[in-house]
Amino acid sequence: MYDKILLTTMGEYMDEIIEHTLNLIQGEAEVICIYIVETSVPFLTPKKVKEMMIDELTAKGKDILEDMSKGFDKPGINFRKLMVKGNPADEIVKAATDEEVDVIVMGTGKSIVDKHLLGSVSEKVVHSAPCTILLVRTAN
């Protein structure tokens, strides 16, 4: 049913997200796992610190994508890693559009306090996604 799946992760609740994605696959599928290096920093952040943050996030993203690939090391699954820089919600929607995926899988489950203080990427994606979305209720 779903031949091309876009999977988003920031490194949390990977097991739940992998499990639900595997449940979607019947036969063969292409799974694209996207990690977004968020490059925005507040005004007055020192430039060198910003560069350091981006380097750290890039290294973290590589580790996360590597871990995710292990979960999809199964016959019939073509797994692809994708790392982009920018605003997470915008980049997820853009990747889904460019890659013409059938479904986006992402975690959700922030508390009300967290949603107010940190914002919710999944809520933003829901409003502008070009395809079906599976929101996996995570441990929170």
């Binding site: 490194g11 610190v49 750290e56 973290k60 940190l118």
Partner: peptide, 11 residues
């Protein structure tokens, strides 16, 4: 700004 944004980014 550094402490807050890095905490929010998980660094």
């Amino acid at each position: 700004v550094v402490t807050l944004s890095s905490a929010m980014k998980g660094l």
